[in-house]
Amino acid sequence: MNVFRLLGDLSHLASIIILLHKIQTTRSCRGISFKTQALYVAVFVARYPDLLFRFISFYNSIMKLIFIASSCYILYLMRYRFRPTHDPSIDTFRVEYLIGPCFVLGLIFNYGFNMTEVFWSFSIFLESVAILPQLFMLQRTGEAETITTHYLAALGIYRALYIPNWIYRYFTEDGVVDPIAVTAGIVQTGLYLDFFYVYFTKVLQGEKFELPA
């Protein structure tokens, strides 16, 4: 565990808290892509079955449980509690175009051809693109509530911080590197660059998040 990794995980945790806070206080899931949230449930469920048969650390298990539970809870809030506030007509990204190719990539690139490993790889690839329905929705509406942009920024920063974490681990742990996670992680961070640009130049200067027409 190094400082980048810890801050990354805390940023991930913060993003979940911000999202829950947004839904609860505005009593609305407006501006949030149900499809992206559903993909995160798929990501965590595919990646963390090792909870059942392998103990890594208390920290590791607790975080995994929090991610699975909170992502399911968010889906529940969107699907049942605040269903009328979600507009499916703007959440139109075709997720099958993400799930299919990610599964094929998981079959090709993995660390062992068995269920656990293929699903692990699949989850890594899927996580890297899971934000696309959300960004697509943002693109369509051209604007976002400030709190929603804080959520997205925390989520993007989480992945961005994993990159210095890998560099740090590479140099301090004798060349340790995970090519699948690193490749997917760089792609995932790259997807946020446009968003980060607007977030840091506008939202953090006190302006509303608006995309140029």
Partner: peptide, 10 residues
């Protein structure tokens, strides 16, 4: 607990 492999990052 075993040392965390890069694969076991969250």
């Amino acid at each position: 607990p075993v040392k965390e492999h890069p694969k076991d990052e969250l």
